[in-house]
């Protein structure tokens, strides 16, 4: 029971994928033009994440280590195809407004990151709750962004075009429609992360850093770092001398052991 609560707390608060770890930026920025789109994307990702964590944890003893990344990709891609059909069948409006970003859940680094860092090493029940926690944390981040962008850019909350849960009258507030366009996504996210930095500073945590995939430390922070390592397990060894030569430009691919470390490192920091 404790383990379950710990997993949920970890996903939603401690390692929130968007607000704390700043992962999965592409869907975060692309679909949060309104609260409902953000929540829809979040819930779809949650469903895929829970199922993929479950299946990968179930199959963790059967998948050979050398082909694990392609195996995970096939599992995730099949789940995403199922979700795509479900959305198309039951919520066609949401399906058309999310568009190409639904199949792109496959390359969302949170999903492969969790598969690699947690589900492939843990029992089934904790893995499922890890998926639920991370998925809810992701949904929460998307919801906050979608809420802010819809409110500032359209002056509404939960609008479906004609009706809205709440609409600020035009006389009081003229919506700044740039916020629901592309630039607004970057700007709103910048302010949300700056706010989080302020909160983190008070709690004595490190602020969100820009990932730098040209250094070893920066690469370890990426949830898909193991993808890079796992994508080329056989070619890894001969790459080493080259890597040593071009140290500044090389992207280290042998960072697999560091993925679980980051998790524990965060734990230690908090303590």
């Amino acid at each position: 029971m404790n383990k379950i609560l710990e997993r949920l707390h970890n996903g939603i608060i401690k390692e929130n994928p968007i607000l704390i770890m700043t992962l999965g930026m592409c869907p975060t920025l692309a679909v949060t033009t309104s609260l409902i789109n953000g929540l829809g994307m979040g819930m779809s990702t949650l469903a895929v994440l829970v199922c993929s964590n479950f299946l990968i944890s179930l199959l963790r003893k059967f998948i050979p280590d050398t082909v694990r990344i392609p195996a995970y990709i096939v599992i995730v891609a099949s789940l995403v195809t199922i979700i795509q059909f479900v959305l198309q069948g039951f919520v066609p409006d949401l399906y058309s407004s999310l568009g190409i970003y639904i199949p792109l859940i496959v390359v969302n680094c949170i999903i492969l990151g969790r598969a690699e860092a947690y589900a492939s090493k843990s029992k089934i029940i904790p893995s499922i709750f890890d998926g639920i926690g991370m998925g809810l944390g992701f949904t929460m981040g998307l919801g906050i962004l979608g809420f802010l962008r819809e409110l500032i850019g359209n002056g509404t909350i939960l609008s479906d075009g004609a009706n809205a849960l709440l609409k600020i009258p035009e006389e009081i507030y003229t919506p700044a429609s740039v916020m629901i366009l592309a630039p607004g996504a970057f700007i709103v996210l910048a302010f949300v992360i700056a706010t989080m930095n302020k909160i983190k500073e008070k709690k004595g945590m490190k602020p969100a850093e820009v990932p730098d995939y040209t250094t070893k430390e920066g690469c370890a922070g990426c949830a898909a770092a193991s993808m890079c390592a796992g994508a080329a397990p056989q070619t890894e060894a001969p790459a080493d001398p080259l890597k040593a030569k071009a140290e500044s430009a090389a992207i280290p691919r042998a960072v697999k052991p560091e993925v679980p470390k980051t998790e524990t490192a965060v734990k230690e920091e908090k303590e």
């Binding site: 630039p183 970057f186 996210l189 910048a190 992360i193 706010t195």
Partner: peptide, 16 residues
């Protein structure tokens, strides 16, 4: 400003 260092700074640049 301190809280805008790093990620928010780059995101604002990308927004502009």
């Amino acid at each position: 400003p301190k809280s805008f260092k790093g990620m928010p700074h780059v995101l604002l640049t990308a927004g502009l």
